[in-house]
Design a binder for these strands. Sequence first.
DNA 1: CTGGATCCGAATCGATACTG
DNA 2: CAGTATCGATTCGGATCCAG
Lengths: 103, 103
Amino acid sequence: MDLLSGPWTMYLLWVLSTQGPTRFGALKRRIEGISTKMLTERLRMLEAEGLLFRHYEPTVPPQVTYGLTERGQELISVLNLLDDLAVRWYGDAASPPCTDAPQ
Amino acid sequence: MDLLSGPWTMYLLWVLSTQGPTRFGALKRRIEGISTKMLTERLRMLEAEGLLFRHYEPTVPPQVTYGLTERGQELISVLNLLDDLAVRWYGDAASPPCTDAPQ
DNA sequence: CTGGATCCGAATCGATACTG
DNA sequence: CAGTATCGATTCGGATCCAG
């Protein structure tokens, strides 16, 4: 509970679940409003909990990709149920802005 | 998400789910560590969201009982799944102090 | 591009005192 | 018993600057 209670945490997981593995900058742009500090903190915490992985590619410039681990996926399935309730109670409008056109 | 992200929120719901309708003072004692202010805030918020009800009995002294609504129960079922994951990942020790012997 | 370090204002939260 | 009101310490989080 403490883990998920942090700001942006659930939303970050959610974004990763809809986008698949995503790079740091893309996440920052996608989440819009989150600060570098927050994003880094959340990513570190979730990584420490084994909910997501960090893939570092030492190119120039470096590329770092984050994605859900198996545990992360399991957690997402619970969050999906939560979303079902949210939709049922508040309607689709309450859903996160899933404006993804991933192509 | 914002709703559940608040401090004590999930735990409070959890306690109410294992105790059934509970009075203010009992909740405060049960949750141990929460301040009056926090508890009141959380209760108000959850009531406003229709997750729990407030029953006021104008006796002397007054008795106020809080309990889960139907919506609250639905949400608990999701939290239970979350608990399943927690137990699987961290073991029973990480569970809330569910020291209930319901028989 | 991906962060780490620092500073500082804003929001939070607990403790306390008080009421019906 | 069940809160409300206020105040002050603390924490939090964003902005900024810097580096590999």
